[in-house]
């Protein structure tokens, strides 16, 4: 078995597609680090002056000085029993809005900003996607070229071949995901350190756990993509199906007439696994009359991890069974 795993590891590594994918992921990490470093670059004196001037203008335009004056007459009415006139100025004067914030590693793994996941999560998703494509090509290539029949003519122990291929995918995905995800965080750590913003131990702990979850996610996703390709026997068809499941599945879930169907969305579960305290809007939630409920739902790592693990196990079982029986 060890021998077979070595053979499959070599087959995985020496492919040109694998090399291209590694290069693409390396570029992705470089771009990601550069973008975060640029977006969080230290404020210049001019930036600060502009922000303060903007805040003053804003205060004048919105009649804030009138409000402050009214507050200063009766501060306790405005700000509570302990308030003083000075508090009125502090708390009612608009804060300057600086064009960017300092680099904070923990912010990069929190919930998404605007429509995109935050940089740490986006990187984890893209690394997983890259490794999934690589794994699907590794599995589908021998079907496309017909070389799988040559491989099996030399080693007809089908389960052994399948398991060795799956393990090779897992090992390579593990190594590559650790390499790229860790490279991203280590680079940002040094960027923060160089700016005198040494991350706290809480931040480092949060990032470490996130890295672990991202690596597990990437390995599971790539092994799953491999297994699914073995069932479908075509790389492009597998990737198309995964794309449909990811995006089309979201649309479908929103139309399912079952309350709480968002719990079963692949994207929600993927984000639930990666993002600490992930919340999502579930359009399928139906509130009974008189009952208080919200469409914002929370998903824990355990819930998401269980869902993804069961999905992976089912695909692996189907794949192993299909490989044993299929004509090649």
């Amino acid at each position: 078995m060890i021998n077979q795993i070595r053979v499959e590891l070599t087959r995985y590594r020496v492919r040109r597609a694998a090399t291209f994918m590694l290069l693409a992921l390396a570029v992705l990490v470089l771009v990601g680090v550069t973008k975060v470093a640029w977006d969080t670059r230290p404020l210049t004196a001019q930036d600060r002056q502009d922000a303060i001037a903007q805040a003053k203008m804003s205060a004048q335009r919105s009649g804030v000085s009138d409000l402050i004056a009214q507050c200063q007459q009766k501060p306790t009415d405005w700000l509570g029993p302990q308030a003083t006139a000075a508090d009125c100025v502090d708390r009612l004067t608009p804060e300057p809005k600086y064009p960017r914030v300092d680099l904070n590693l923990e912010r990069l793994i929190s919930e998404g900003k605007d429509t995109l996941p935050s940089e740490g999560n986006l990187l984890a998703l893209l690394v997983a996607a890259g490794l999934m494509i690589s794994a699907a090509m590794f599995a589908g290539g021998p079907y496309a070229s017909g070389s799988l029949s040559t491989q099996l003519a030399f080693q007809p122990r089908r389960f052994r071949v399948w398991a060795a291929k799956a393990i090779a995918v897992a090992i390579c995905s593990l190594a590559h995901s650790i390499l790229f995800i860790a490279a991203f965080w280590v680079a940002l750590y040094f960027v923060a350190d160089s700016r005198g913003l040494s991350p706290s131990s809480e931040q480092l702990t949060a990032v470490s756990w996130h890295t672990l979850r991202a690596v597990i996610f990437a390995v599971g996703a790539s092994v799953g993509a491999f297994a699914l390709t073995v069932v479908i026997r075509n790389t492009m068809a597998t990737l198309a199906l995964l794309l449909f499941a990811t995006f089309g599945g979201e649309v479908l879930v929103n139309f399912v007439p079952i309350s709480g169907a968002g719990r079963w969305s692949l994207a929600n579960n993927a984000m639930g696994w990666l993002v600490p305290g992930h919340t999502y809007f579930d359009a399928t939630i139906h509130c009974a009359p008189g009952q208080e409920c919200t469409s914002m739902q929370a998903m824990s790592h355990l819930q998401a991890g269980s869902y993804l693990a069961v999905l992976l196990i089912v695909v692996l079982a189907l794949s192993a069974l299909a490989f044993r029986r299929q004509d090649v």
């Binding site: 040109r16 491989q151 080693q155």
Partner: peptide, 19 residues
Amino acid sequence: LFSRSISGRKNLQLLARSM
């Protein structure tokens, strides 16, 4: 029928090693 991006020798070496 062999892996297309791998050299001929490497293809045969992998097959030999697998058995």
